[in-house]
Write a protein that binds this DNA or RNA. Structure first.
Lengths: 203, 203
DNA sequence: TGTACATCAGTGAACGCGCGTTCACTGATGTAC
DNA sequence: TGTACATCAGTGAACGCGCGTTCACTGATGTAC
């Protein structure tokens, strides 16, 4: 068969989305190219007409996921503000479904061992997160501290989510999320006296 | 040859130490059993008289590393206090040498995809860290908030270290560490007005 | 309008390789007699 | 004291398997004439 204009680009996007889900769920190394292509409804041989190597796919997946994440970040920040974003990032559904969540939290320690090019793709995304968070901090945070606070808030969030994911029981896992929320809010200068329990939130 | 009493236990410890270093440097999945045994000066066949599987080694390595980490934590906490520990954890040497540093920071996102038994080993360690940190918080932190603050501080630290490790340039990487220190200290109620620069520290 | 050819996304067999694991074996030494 | 045997940590060849990557091929359709 011969394909529509735009067909190949569509296929590429399908592969990227399959990779994004699989990588977050199982880790990069644990997922094979053949498995991935089969998820996208294709056979493995065609992979190399889309990407030059698996590592190239990893880089492209990070960039693809970062674009999506940033768009969702902005939407949410407008709807629910910084506090809403923090609570949403650290809710139990996010902990329990890494395959639909933050690629950074799912893969950061694995990615730190990848190529400089791949790490640069991650870092371009984290730098944007820092900027976005800094821009939404309350005006009580002095200008020269905003970036530092933004980096600290995101460190707390990504760390708390990962600790929650290795917790062996619900109590420890919930505690990690709740502590992350309370501490991130405190750093942001929001509700320093806030209750420990996060509000129940739905998507 | 026939071996000394205690020889086998010694060999086991050598394997655990080789695994601990290699896993932190390259990730668990990237390191083969044969490679590991060769690091320990042995051939791969003998591996299974020490461990029932690679996953069993992973669990044992976490427990081994946790014992060492806790001993070092206590020593440092007595010498330098909570602030000293935070600064030491987030110093550039730790970022640049994961193979000699915190196993949790190096492997947490990979470990979240391992067996429940393995995750339980990680979590037993994190729970002890939380207890140790909570016990060393200044008395200004109210009793019922201490544990939450301890969890938040460690989340910030482990998150900041990982973000520093994916940073593509020295400036971004240093910023992550410095922000982590400043925010961890603020959460701990230590020097909320502290400078952004960490003190230069040596081992 | 009809025919021959070019295009090119996707197919699937095959490659060399390293993985985790198994197992028959080695050989130095302790023990039984 | 001397000899035969048991022990057991470690050896290294071999297993089946799945990996990333390559490549000759397919076949539906667009294009040239």
């Amino acid at each position: 068969m011969r394909y529509d204009k735009g067909h190949k680009e569509n296929t590429r996007r399908h592969i990227l989305e399959a990779a994004s889900t699989r990588f977050r769920r199982d880790g990069i190394e644990a997922v094979g190219v053949a498995e991935l292509m089969s998820d996208a409804g294709l056979t493995h041989g065609g992979f190399y007409s889309h990407f030059s190597s698996k590592e190239d796919l990893v880089r492209a997946t990070i960039e693809h996921a970062a674009d999506g994440a940033r768009a969702r970040f902005r939407e949410l920040m407008n709807d629910a503000g910084l506090e809403g974003w923090i609570r949403r990032y650290l809710r139990p559904e996010h902990r329990d479904h890494p395959e639909r969540g933050c690629l950074g939290a799912a893969l950061v320690s694995e990615l730190s061992r990848h190529s400089a090019t791949t790490k640069a793709a991650v870092s371009q995304w984290t730098v944007k997160v820092f900027d976005d968070v800094a821009a939404h901090l309350p005006s009580t945070i002095p200008r020269q501290k905003r970036r530092m606070v933004a980096v600290g808030i995101f460190s707390t969030m990504i760390g708390a989510l990962q600790l929650a994911r290795v917790a062996p029981d619900a109590k420890t896992a919930d505690e990690a999320l709740e502590s992350g929320i309370a501490c991130a809010l405190q750093l942001a200068g929001l509700k320093p006296q806030s209750r420990l329990q996060p509000k129940a939130r739905t998507s």
